[in-house]
């Protein structure tokens, strides 16, 4: 464990879609840890749990699907942007919806990019560049619950 890898939290209920991301990452030999949450609630629980170290939090990127059972992507975005600890967290949207309403709403919540699932390759290429060049926001300590 000489080096902490960037953490990719994939909020996705669909096995295949998750698998696409995982296989794409593996294919590109990107050095990231992938964590999965099946819906918004699970993702929030994961982010707020102690399963993530501060080092991991310092290089945290969320890939968020919009249409999910339970808490959907928009609700999740609303929740983390209202949370002091995650309001600056880097979020990419990866969804099947190309509806302008969804796109607008996502960017209103300061997402770093909006990608369609048909273009996972594009997202992963962007991600690898992103990870190489972009500085992440500083980590905010979690408030004791």
């Amino acid at each position: 464990m000489n080096k902490v890898l960037p953490t990719l939290v994939v909020v996705e209920d669909d096995f295949v879609d998750l698998e696409i991301v995982k296989r794409g990452v593996a294919k590109r030999q990107m050095e990231v840890d992938i964590l999965n949450a099946a819906d918004g609630n699970a993702a929030l629980d994961l982010l707020r749990s102690d399963r993530l170290t501060d080092q991991q939090r310092s290089q945290l990127i969320v890939l968020l699907d919009i249409n999910m059972p339970g808490m959907n992507g928009h609700q999740f975005l609303d929740a983390i942007r209202a949370d002091e600890a995650f309001r600056r967290t880097t979020v990419f949207i990866l969804t099947t919806s190309d509806h302008p309403r969804d796109i607008t709403r996502a960017y209103d919540r300061n997402v770093a990019g909006y990608f369609l699932k048909s273009n996972v390759g594009g997202l992963l290429e962007t991600l690898s560049l992103y990870l190489r060049h972009v500085k992440s926001p500083p980590v905010v300590s979690l408030q004791p619950v």
């Binding site: 669909d14 096995f15 295949v16 698998e19 696409i20 296989r23 099947t96 699932k117």
Partner: peptide
């Protein structure tokens, strides 16, 4: 067509894998 597309894409990917 929209909802069928998603599982179809899944099948396509699975077959590809």
């Amino acid at each position: 067509s929209h909802d069928l597309r998603s599982p179809l894409r899944g099948i396509k990917h699975l077959a590809q894998w």
